[in-house]
């Protein structure tokens, strides 16, 4: 049962992502992305990361997608400017390259003796919290600076020209 859910969810995540590749309209693409992200959240949960599953839903599916949709909305206010292009004409080369990369990665990942499995045990939010504010405390603090920097940058870029 567990396995079925896992592989099914994986299939959804991958298929939804592939749909972005060919979706004609940005809104459709964004919706496919949401599906993929939600499926991923479920995968996280199945892999014993309940906290991350929740965060995935909140941050990605919630916040980030809203940003995307908002932007799409803003742009769509001006009709005629924003036709999405079909697949670019020279698509075969890049697609082939991506395929090679995939094969390489798969080859590499299946070459190593790391296939052993243990029973899935959930790593509780508490453990994550302890790690976050124990050894990773400095990174947390620094990440705050990163957010501040991004905020300043975004604020500057988004304001009207200084008179």
């Amino acid at each position: 049962m567990y396995e079925i859910i896992f592989y099914l969810t994986s299939a959804i995540a991958v298929l939804a992502a592939s749909a972005i590749l060919i979706a004609p309209h940005p809104v459709h693409a964004a919706l496919y992305l949401v599906i993929s992200l939600l499926a991923l959240a479920l995968l996280f949960f199945l892999l014993g990361a309940p906290l991350l599953a929740a965060l995935q839903v909140m941050i990605y599916a919630g916040a980030i997608m809203v940003l995307f949709l908002f932007l799409i909305m803003v742009m769509n206010l001006r009709p005629g400017q924003n036709q999405s292009a079909p697949l670019a004409s020279g698509w075969k080369g890049p697609a082939f390259l991506a395929l090679i990369l995939l094969l390489e990665l798969l080859w590499i990942l299946n070459r190593f003796q790391i296939t052993a499995t243990n029973n899935i045990t959930a790593i509780e939010p508490k453990a994550v919290g302890l790690a976050l504010f124990g050894p990773y405390l400095l990174v947390v603090e620094v990440a705050a600076v990163l957010l501040l920097a991004a905020l300043v940058a975004a604020l500057y870029l988004s304001r009207k020209e200084r008179s």
Binding site: S10, I20, L101, L102, I120
Partner: peptide, 23 residues
Amino acid sequence: MIPLSHSLTIAALLFVLGLAIIL
């Protein structure tokens, strides 16, 4: 149970799909 390599394969698939979208 799920072998690690299966999860990693799915992850690699996603990574390359993203890359393909960009390209």
